[in-house]
């Protein structure tokens, strides 16, 4: 299928054609309007549904398998002051959310009813350790969190009482982003100062302090094979680092505004990024180039997530200040 937007000049056609050669086409599949009464701050997909969180207190769960993406469940009052982070595990049966009050909650799917319910909650033990960013390990057994004082914690969600099992000290700069590698070995954190760290969860030590982005790092994300770490933020570039060596291997530039979110496709071939100026970009990791750009209204794009690969073609979802969730799929052929 062809892009419907007409180009105004013939030069534009030539240019478009050239881009077409190396670009991928994604089509808007569906948009759910007014999912939340205020900015959608986070999206977390499972194989059959997408969970969304916003400045309101509830989590909404929409089916992604039915034609019109119907609302399946609402969890009211999940975090009274609003929710800023929401993540799921690979299996799609566990989720975690963190709210403006500084706590994290763990959610699980009831095997009989298929409904989500609360499993427990986590919070910092004293002032300044309120939880901000969170990440779940692929199997959902561990949760990593950041706090305003720069400490990075790892919690064991399967153990009784969900204890904190690791606490990593950094230089005290506010931890804005965090991720756990799929194999559970590494924790990465991005900080207000621009610092990015990788910690080894086995040894409990910092394994690398990566080349700083100088400006706030709003997203860090491990590739599915845990070989690469992508980091981005106000520097408007996406930096790729080799996890084992700690070397920076690439810089992807093209965003014109702060980058707010990063997500790897299941195969690790593509990176999806969302920015403050409501642009989503898809990057080929092989060629280190941007292969598609989409606009999602004119408000900040807080969340851009691939949906787990099913039999259907590749899909992703965008959500942000527009309060809507839009689904895109790769154009066939």
């Amino acid at each position: 299928m062809v892009c419907k937007r007409a180009s105004t000049s013939s030069l534009g056609y030539v240019y478009r054609a050239l881009i077409y050669l190396q670009s991928k086409q994604y089509l808007t599949l569906h948009t759910i309007d007014d999912v939340h009464p205020t900015d959608i701050f986070s999206l977390a997909p499972t194989k059959t549904a997408i969970l969304s969180a916003s400045g309101s207190s509830s989590i909404h769960i929409h089916s992604t398998t039915a034609q019109d993406f119907p609302l399946q469940q609402t969890i009211p009052g999940a975090h009274k002051l609003g929710i800023h982070h929401l993540v799921t595990n690979n299996e799609g049966n566990k989720a975690a959310s963190s709210g403006f009050e500084g706590e994290a909650k763990i959610w699980g799917v009831n095997q009989d009813s298929g409904e989500w319910g609360e499993l427990g909650s986590l919070k910092g033990e004293y002032k300044g350790t309120e939880i901000w960013a969170i990440a779940l390990s692929a199997d959902g057994s561990y949760l990593a969190s950041t706090s305003i004082d720069g400490k990075i914690s790892v919690w064991d969600l399967n153990a009784e009482g969900m204890p904190k099992i690791r606490e990593y000290e950094t230089k005290g700069s506010y931890g804005m982003s965090v991720d756990l590698s799929a194999d559970g070995r590494f924790t990465a954190s991005g900080h207000e100062s621009g610092s990015i760290y990788i910690f080894d969860n086995d040894s409990g030590r910092m394994s690398h302090s990566l080349a700083s982005l100088i400006k706030p790092v709003r997203a860090v994300s491990f590739s599915p094979a845990s070989k690469l770490l992508a980091a981005a933020g106000d520097a408007r570039v996406i930096a790729l680092y080799d996890v084992l060596s700690g070397e920076q291997v690439a810089n992807l530039s093209g965003h014109g505004a702060w980058i707010l979110s990063l997500d790897w496709s299941d195969t690790g071939e593509y990176l999806l990024s969302g920015s403050y100026d409501s642009k989503a970009k898809i990057w080929s990791v092989d060629t280190r180039s941007c292969v598609a750009t989409h606009s999602h209204g004119d408000k900040p794009l807080w969340a851009a997530k691939w949906l787990p690969k099913t039999t259907r073609s590749e899909m992703f979802a965008l959500g942000g200040g527009s309060k809507a969730i839009s689904f895109y799929r790769e154009a066939a052929g």
Binding site: T38, D39, S56, H84, Y174, E192
Partner: peptide
């Protein structure tokens, strides 16, 4: 959430999100 100043709430949240 259902209070009289939803705009203020939203702006406070944005402040925290953007820092």
């Amino acid at each position: 959430e259902q209070g009289p100043e939803s705009e203020w709430r939203h702006e406070l949240q944005l402040m925290l999100m953007l820092n």
